[in-house]
Design a protein around this nucleic acid. Structure first.
Length: 935
RNA sequence: GGGCCUGUAGCUCAGUCCGGUUAGAGCGCACGCCUGAUAAGCGUGAGGUCGAUGGUUCAAUUCCAUCCAGGCCCA
């Protein structure tokens, strides 16, 4: 007789091989067809909301591994909150306006662009964005991210554009929005402002001049050595044409400066550490250092401008370096970014007397009308005439050029719109609100606090096409500003209906009612502002355009979750736009994650070639492995990814999957409605397994609560590998396979496994939605079983599972088991045994442990998976194994007595005593008789 | 150059906040067992100067300083 046929071996359709790359898309299709997301929404209507508000990725290009991680983390949170009993809708969004898209459309259009209207170009940009929204949407969905993909928020949706304008006008109305000059890159040939991304750097030959500025104050009081001397501060510049706009000279607050006498009475001031190199450059070898001065002593003093009868102020700035020049920096606030920043602190204006063509304006004596680069030579001549020029040469250096016409660009101050950080106490209120927000990790608070505390006013103007206009008007006669609530409302209504394109299609009159007149001069015709808003403003107001607009959402959000770069980005702009208009942060908590780096911790870059694309991972391993990677990583730091790491995770995945598969196989004939065994009727080891499950569930709840998914990953994996596979399930095999199918012993094991598997599947569902669903669909049917695991909630600990006393005992038995396996290994090495069932173990223990083993003397045979285990009261004979870790514990391993039962493989002295069932043990004989009776 | 952050076995993570027994886990690796979870399962074992150097302390992976490596944001 072949006894194998009388065993209850595992049986399941759940495949061992996951085949994720192929199966996942099928699963996604099924979910979509069954409208699972809508079902979840419906089922959780009325529950407490949990709102994770999506930060919009930029609608350009394919997603990269960082975007994938971000979205997967969001999905973990949304799914786990949903399963924790919240109503957790997820509305994904896209950032659609802005330079990169316009730039790419520009490139695609080429010369054709010149023949197109602004509105036509904007239409191209919209089409371009739509294309990538579709691409990215599919890529995000493929990751298993669940949400309102059919109805995402788009910053270029008409209503959204209308709200951008409306929110901007709120700043206009409360005085936060103001107009001021600021230097920007300007191409004189294209006559356009350029963004940093539109600048290309090439080498260029420029004049290099050292110019002296006569100090007006006498320093004799503070520095007697200088009394009565003619003192000059020496600057170095490669852009002489900016000298007419010089308003200041910057010194570093912490550098020492030297007063150097070059001939009688003539003294030059340069940084002490640059004296030698400077004087050499000037061609002066005879000089005397009269004294050293600290920069603070010079601050606020004045120099005479070398060209004009006005002064130049001595100021302090940390941007000053000793890399080149004299340590005294020519400062033209209208022609340099740092010059501008420094000048702001001293109340100097961004003076920039250069027109759109790059020619000096009429106010520039001597050079008006001249193109700035052409004026360089004449300016140098004039400096020479005025004896202000020390020396000149030509140098080659890297200089910014226009990406389109390749000509050198200039820095030029033009009027820009700003949101004031001080008006309405925006800075202070924002800092206050930062304190009200929970920052995870906690250092996020300090980071954004520092940024808000130190940032300049927010320049929201962009001289571009693809964006939402700053909807203000100017009087066509007197140029004064016109903005009021009536106009803001009209703009809103028109944008809402027709999109922001209408601004570029219609005249000012379309937005202004007939009786509107200029408050200054009474004129009734106006022109539109042409600047558009910084895209950070677009995404920054998503709290208004999404949270406040959609009925199923609420303001503020519970959580924003983005990479740590967003402290300066979206967290920042969202905070300012919300505090500036609502006096409150738009989020209750902000969670940040690090960046994805390679195996060595280096950032990914195309040039290094260490980029891993999500698409490759999905094709090779499946989205589930990518998700497992996210779950295994502590995302608060930078997260590494490599083939080795992914390989490790697919191993981990297989372990989890196979453990579940084993349980599924053993639940094939289990009906939870009728076969469940009450906990009181279960053997202790089954109760222990459920107690341990309780520990795991508690841990998972805590970790989901604190968004520490890596703790869940490790706990889950550990539980599958150690608690289940290597311990509980390994022990259970004997009982599951050999007991009569409907016996209480087997049903008890199945009951425990059913609860274990159900709980495991639910706990893994937020992280491994595909696999959890697959398990769910293969689990035994039960009355009221949900259509999808994603409609269920996280497992709850049943109080009857808890038994601390029992757990303590089994923890000890487990420790003993660990020692038994060592003793068995020793016997295996000696070739005494192969399989553990070849062995009989005699055990000697001391004290309490002895009592415990006595108490479980019936169970320990199966717990140690040997054929015979006995507890001895006397000493063991020679050759015993002595435990190192547990005092007084020793074992004597021997060949198990009796014959091996052909059915259960356990050795027993009584094996073979039955004629009816030859070569079987009494236990199996009973089982076989039972089988025969009940069929 | 500045701000914020990180550095524990080959890999992914515990432990460090509130210093104190031989620093833990899983995976991987090596070796072995099993062949009734089988492109599975079980066992045993080797692996760490806790980034480096100084300091505080009776005692530092843990506290402090500096440095090195790396990341994000600025300049």
């Amino acid at each position: 007789m072949n006894y194998k046929d009388t065993l209850n071996l595992p049986n399941t359709q759940f495949p061992m091989k996951a085949n994720l790359a192929q199966r996942e898309p099928e699963q996604l299709k099924t979910w979509e067809e069954n409208r699972i997301y809508e079902k979840i929404r419906k089922a959780s209507a009325g529950r407490k909301l949990f709102l994770l508000h999506d930060g919009p990725p930029y609608a350009n290009g394919h997603i990269h591994i960082g975007t994938a991680m971000n979205k997967i983390l969001k999905d973990f949170i949304v799914r786990s909150k949903q399963m924790a009993g919240f109503d957790a809708p997820y509305v994904p969004g896209w950032d659609c306006h802005g330079l990169p898209i316009e730039h790419n459309v520009d490139k695609e259009l080429g010369k054709k662009k010149l023949t197109m209207s602004l509105v036509e170009i904007r239409r191209q940009c919209r089409t371009y964005a739509e294309k990538y929204i579709d691409i990215q949407r599919n890529e995000f969905k493929r990751l298993g991210v669940m949400g309102e993909w059919e109805n995402p928020y788009l910053t270029m949706a008409y209503r959204y554009e209308a709200i951008i304008a409306k929110e901007c006008m709120k700043f206009a109305m409360n005085g936060g929005l103001f107009r001021s000059k600021k230097p920007i890159h300007w191409c004189c040939s294209c006559k356009t402002a350029l963004a940093e991304a539109e600048i290309e750097y090439y080498d260029e030959k420029s004049p290099s001049v050292f110019v002296k500025f006569r100090l007006l104050e006498d320093l004799g009081h503070e520095f007697p050595a200088l009394a009565g001397k003619e003192v000059h501060v020496v600057i170095w510049t490669t852009t002489p044409w900016t000298l007419p706009a010089n308003l200041a000279i910057a010194l570093h607050p912490e550098y020492a400066y030297a007063a150097v006498e070059i001939h009688s009475n003539q003294v030059l001031i340069v940084a002490r550490d640059l004296v030698e190199s400077s004087l050499k450059a000037f061609g002066i070898d005879a000089y005397t250092i009269l004294c050293e001065l600290n920069a603070g002593a010079l601050e606020g003093k004045h120099c005479r401008h070398p060209l004009y009868s006005r002064n130049s102020l001595l100021v302090l700035g940390r941007h000053v370096t000793l890399d080149a020049g004299t340590g005294c920096v020519h400062t033209a606030p209208g022609h340099g970014r740092e010059d501008y920043e420094t000048a702001l602190e001293y109340g100097l204006e961004p003076y920039s007397p250069v027109d759109d063509n790059g020619r000096f304006t009429d106010e520039v004596e001597l050079f008006s009308g001249q193109f700035v680069f052409d004026a360089n030579g004449r300016i140098i001549e004039k400096l020479k005439d005025n004896q202000a020029l020390i020396t000149q040469e030509t140098i080659q250096h890297s200089y910014p050029h226009c990406w389109r016409c390749k000509k050198p660009v200039i820095f030029r101050a033009t009027p820009q719109w700003f949101i004031s950080m001080e008006e309405n106490d925006l800075r202070r209120n924002s800092l206050d609100q930062i304190e009200q927000v929970r920052w995870i990790p906690a250092w996020g608070r300090e980071r954004i606090h520092g940024m808000i505390a130190n940032r300049p006013d927010w320049c929201v103007s962009r001289q571009r096409s693809w964006g939402v206009p700053i909807t203000v008007f100017y009087c066509s006669k007197c140029d004064s500003l016109l903005m009021n609530q009536r106009i803001a409302d009209k703009v809103y209504a028109l944008f809402d209906e027709l999109g922001a394109d209408v601004w570029f299609e219609k005249d000012a009159a379309a937005f202004i009612s007939e009786n509107e007149t200029c408050p200054k001069c009474g004129n009734d015709s106006f022109v539109k502002e042409t600047d558009i808003l910084d895209v950070w403003f677009d995404s920054g107001v998503s709290h208004a355009a999404v949270l406040e607009e959609r009925s199923q959402l609420a303001w503020p959000a519970d959580l924003y979750l983005e990479g740590s770069d967003q402290h300066r980005g979206w967290f920042h702009s969202s905070l300012l736009t919300a505090v500036g208009t609502r006096q409150q942060a738009p989020y209750k908590a902000v969670l940040t994650h690090g960046f994805v780096v390679d195996a060595a911790g280096k950032k990914m870059s195309k040039s290094i070639g260490n980029v891993i694309a999500p698409d490759e991972v999905i094709k090779k391993y499946g989205a589930e492995i990518l998700r497992l990677w996210v779950s295994a990583s502590d995302y608060r730091d930078d997260v590494r990814i490599s083939d080795e790491i992914l390989k490790q995770l697919s191993d981990a995945y297989r372990r989890i999957r196979n453990t579940c598969r084993f349980m599924l196989g053993n639940l094939a004939d289990f009906n939870p409605d009728t076969d469940v065994v009450a906990i009181q009727a279960m053997p202790d080891i089954d109760r222990y397994a459920l107690h341990r499950l309780g520990d795991l569930i508690a841990k998972a709840h805590r970790a989901y609560d604190s968004f520490e998914f890596h703790l869940i990953h490790h706990a889950l994996h550990n539980f599958c590998a150690v608690d289940l596979s290597a311990f509980y399930l390994d022990i259970l095999k004997d009982r599951l396979y050999t007991s009569p199918p409907r016996s209480a012993a087997r049903r008890s094991a199945q009951t425990a496994m059913f609860f274990l598997l159900e709980a495991l599947a639910k706990m893994m569902a937020p992280i491994l939605p595909f696999t959890a669903e697959e398990i769910w669909q293969h689990m035994p049917n039960q009355t009221g079983k949900a259509d999808s695991i994603h409609l269920t909630e996280l497992p709850k600990i049943k109080t009857e599972w808890r038994d601390e006393m029992l757990a303590r005992k089994w923890d000890q038995l487990l420790a003993v088991r660990g020692e038994v396996t060592k003793a068995l290994e020793e016997a295996r090495v000696k070739k005494l045994i192969g399989h553990p069932l070849d062995a009989a173990v005699a055990i000697r223990a001391e004290g309490e442990l002895q009592g415990l083993l006595e108490e479980y003397k019936e169970e320990i045979r199966s717990v140690f998976i040997v054929s015979k285990a006995t507890v001895e009261s006397g000493g063991l004979s020679q050759g015993a194994f002595h435990s190192n870790d547990i005092k007084g514990l020793s074992f004597l391993v021997s060949r198990a007595p009796g014959e091996k039962c052909e059915r259960c493989w356990v050795y027993d002295s009584a094996t073979g005593t039955s004629a009816e069932y030859p070569n079987t043990c009494p236990r199996c004989q009973a089982a076989l008789r039972e089988l025969e009776k009940n069929g």
